[in-house]
Amino acid sequence: MLHSIGKDSAVLLHLARKAFWPGPPPMPLLHVDTTWKFRDMIAFRDRMAAEAEIRLIVHTNREGVDAGITPFTHGSDHYTQVMKTVALRQALDAGRYDMILVGARRDEEKSRAKERIFSLRNARHQWDPKAQRPELWHLYNTRLQEGESLRISPLSNWSEADVWYYIAAEGIPIVPLYRAAERPVVERDGQLIMVDDDRMPLAPGEVPTRRRVRFRTLGCYPLTAAVESNADTLDAIIAETLAADHSEREGRLIDHDTEASMERKKREGYF
């Protein structure tokens, strides 16, 4: 089960724990760590894995780290390619996994709207949108040829609001960054970026200011924009989500790089 530590991953892990109760989920949890995640995320990940009694596998693209690839020195496109896409492939190849559970939702982005719940990938992890298996009723064809794998998205039909309602209804723990709090941020290109550690290079004269912000989506801190908010309870977050005029991926800088960037990344083996 692929784990990004975000709210969707939290819901997916919770569902798995419920399904396999009274035993722990039998599959390991895989986190691709770019080394640039928020510190709060890593602490939360380790705590949840221990509580769920699930085996946690963490993979980092060491060659990328050794080559000095960072979101500051390279464009977000190249950085994502090396530290996420390539890293993910390395981790999946190493584990030879044939079924990979992910927390993707169809409403996140247009090309995901077309993706099946059981999505077939070839030996190079690529998605071919024109060679998808029809999915009828709740019958999923899980037969695979050598080297092929399935990306399984049980949350496909959930909306962002569904996720929040479910987190509230079930009392699922989430990373504190989703709740509004005073945090040190700088404003760049109209986006609020949190200064999570001292690796963040500041421009001459740039001084982090403390502002009341939260995150709608979590990723690498230099690439994840915060929104100004006072929503520090689940009810307030839900109210804000329902009223929002911007879709949640707005906060993710990688989507804007090129036209249809997500579809292209998916054909290459990114989610």
């Binding site: 169809r106 709207a113 024109k130 496909s156 959930w158 609001a161 249809a260």
Partner: peptide, 29 residues
């Protein structure tokens, strides 16, 4: 609705797309 690149170019829908939405009275997929 038309999500995939090929479709935008050809102006047709080539695969089934799912989308959720809500009105004050009901949720839809």
């Amino acid at each position: 609705m038309d999500g995939l690149q090929d479709e935008r170019r050809q102006g047709i829908t080539i695969d089934v797309a799912y989308r959720g939405f809500r009105t004050p009275r009901r949720c839809f997929i």
